[in-house]
Design a protein around this nucleic acid. Structure first.
Length: 220
DNA sequence: AAGCTCCCCAACCGCCTCAGA
DNA sequence: TTCTGAGGCGGTTGGGGAGCT
């Protein structure tokens, strides 16, 4: 027996429609109670998935694009300092790099250090006592700036899926944030897109939000 | 033009932590 | 004090695009 689609939690790349929905509900409910948010939003996603999408991609403070040389230096420096001694090192480092996420730094580190390790392997004479790449890099290790390439914003958006609405197609993150700005200017009167779920739930959500504020004030 | 390789990064998984009941 | 569930984190994987042959 295959459960009906509505019972399945969706996985894989997020669509623009889902992003819009998530952004809207995060603004409505705040960055908490992700499981609850996932349920009431009508997104067929887990709370974890929603949180990850928000933190790593949709959060307004995020920088896009390649790391600057200064950021690269800082990552190398902080990783040398904390890399093998602390839990949560990536989040620690990320906190020192405004607009960068732990995931981004982690990806950066893996890519560049793997490359670096390969370079070292080919350039230096092989020594049996040399440590594996799982160990932290020496503090003098510098990340070389390499050829830049275009960073495709929203490259995870694949064509189609169940998205068929022409209104949604062609949205970029800039446009999404324009939508948010616009919705703020109209005092959050309406969700960014028209959908039955908005009509079904939007009114009760205002009440839910109020209830949450009373019964569950945000942590400090 | 087609195939291959490499790089980047979004997203999932599993474990851990911690707050609230 | 213990239990439970939500959130947070690090490790890992897989897809897509760009560059190269």
């Amino acid at each position: 027996m295959v459960p009906p689609p509505t019972m399945m939690t969706r996985k894989g790349p997020w669509t623009e429609q889902e992003d819009l929905q998530l952004v809207w509900f995060v603004r409505l409910l705040g960055e908490r109670r992700w499981d609850f948010l996932a349920k009431v939003s009508g997104l067929n996603r887990s709370g974890k998935s929603c949180r990850l999408r928000w933190v790593n991609y949709l959060h307004p403070g995020l920088k896009r694009g390649r790391m600057t040389p200064q950021e690269e230096d800082l990552v190398v420096e902080l990783h040398a300092k904390w890399g093998n001694r602390f839990d949560r090192r990536w989040s620690r480092i990320a906190r020192r790099l405004p607009g960068r996420t732990d995931n981004e730094i982690k990806n950066y580190w893996r890519t560049h250090m793997r490359k670096k390790a390969q370079e070292r392997r080919t350039c230096s004479s092989p020594s049996p006592s040399s440590s594996s790449s799982s160990n932290g890099p020496p503090s003098e290790l510098r990340v070389e700036k390499h050829d830049g390439d275009s960073v495709a914003e929203g490259s995870a958006f694949t064509s189609g899926l169940e998205l068929t609405d022409d209104e949604v197609k062609g949205y970029t993150m800039d446009q999404i944030w324009n939508e948010i700005a616009a919705s703020e200017s109209c005092n959050m009167e309406c969700p960014p897109t028209s959908s039955s779920i908005w009509e079904d739930k939007s009114e009760s959500l205002w009440r839910l939000d109020e209830d949450l504020r009373i019964s569950n004030p945000p942590r400090v």
